[in-house]
């Protein structure tokens, strides 16, 4: 077991592993500050020209990084906006990113659950039924080639016309995106048992149900987890897209949209980062569950 753990870490000291990540992060921050100065400079110069004042380089840089509505907010402004949105509000407040994040998260999780169940069921059907094998996959692929931006408003409008608003329509859009990776992963996973293992099952006169529960399903788990990581991120994207149309007032997507209506770039970026952090946490949670499960099953690589 300790051997497996060492392999999982790549056998490298944690500080050394963090070094490349921190280097890249630092580079991004530097480039970002540069870009913020460069992109906000025309506005600052314009203001200075109108006020008929001259700017030193120091003034220019200071002002470009402290604008209330910058074209590109500086990292510290986004960080402050994020902190303000998360910790500076009551979590029941409509300005709280925690509240908006929860609205998005609940729809994401619901959509992820629907998508995962649908993906697994379709995969089971495809693996066990020849007709489904030949008919379902092209439709599944086609469903993903339709731009979600085109589908989302229609789903919202159709559900709203039936009096259904809020979580469910968004969850449907999230499920639309998240069933596909699960379907593809599970079809592959359920087909991993090799001929020898299927022959053994055959020689024991195992039923298809026994073959499924005892061999195919456990064998497919590594593939399922890989798919789930993609699916949960896709579900989050689907939910946010579902929050954009039709004047939704709650959720990170709505926050993005209202930010862009009123030119609140800091708000847009804060919501964006909140979504990214949420996605990272969700993917990490599934990763942790994956490691735990596969190690217990002796399937960890």
């Amino acid at each position: 077991m300790t051997e497996a753990v060492a392999r999982g870490n790549g056998g490298v000291n944690p500080t050394l592993r963090a070094l490349p990540i921190l280097t890249v992060l630092l580079a991004i921050v530097v480039v970002w500050y540069g870009a913020a100065v460069w992109m906000n400079a025309p506005w600052v110069r314009d203001q200075a020209a109108r006020a008929e004042t001259t700017l030193t380089t120091g003034d220019l840089i200071r002002q470009t990084l402290t604008l209330e509505r910058p074209v590109l907010p500086a990292p510290h402004q986004v960080a402050a906006g994020l902190w303000e949105g998360i910790a500076g509000q009551k979590i029941t407040s409509k300005r709280s990113l925690v509240w908006h994040g929860w609205v998005t998260l609940s729809a994401t999780l619901a959509g992820f659950a629907i998508g995962t169940v649908a993906g697994i069921l379709l995969a089971v059907g495809i693996v066990h039924n020849r007709a489904m094998d030949q008919s379902v996959m092209p439709w599944a692929v086609a469903s993903q080639t339709v731009p979600i931006l085109a589908i989302a408003p229609m789903v919202i409008v159709v559900f709203a016309s039936m009096g259904v608003t809020g979580l469910l329509p968004k969850a449907i859009i999230a499920a639309w995106l998240s069933f596909f990776p699960v379907l593809v992963g599970m079809v592959k996973g359920l087909r991993t048992p090799d001929a020898m293992q299927l022959d053994l099952m055959h020689s024991w006169n195992a039923s298809r149900a026994q073959q499924f529960w005892r061999l195919r399903l456990p064998s497919s788990l590594p593939y399922l987890f890989a798919s789930l990581k993609v699916a949960i991120a896709a579900a989050l994207v689907g939910t946010i897209v579902g929050e954009l149309p039709a004047g939704a007032t709650a959720g990170l997507g709505a926050r993005l949209l209202s930010g862009s209506y009123y030119g609140q770039t800091v708000q847009i970026w804060s919501a964006l980062f909140a979504a990214a952090i949420l996605a990272a946490v969700l993917v990490m949670l599934i990763g942790a569950l994956e490691r735990l499960t596969l190690r217990r099953m002796g399937l960890a690589r």
């Binding site: 053994l200 020689s203 024991w204 006169n205 005892r214 002796g298 399937l299």
Partner: peptide, 28 residues
């Protein structure tokens, strides 16, 4: 169930113990 078949590879399930692997056909 007249046959016990043994292949070149053991084909044991990694997620089952040795006893669990032997138990598999018995459960089936």
């Amino acid at each position: 169930r007249a046959y016990g078949y043994v292949f070149q590879a053991p084909g044991l399930y990694p997620w089952r113990t040795i006893a669990g692997n032997i138990s598999l056909p018995l459960e089936i």
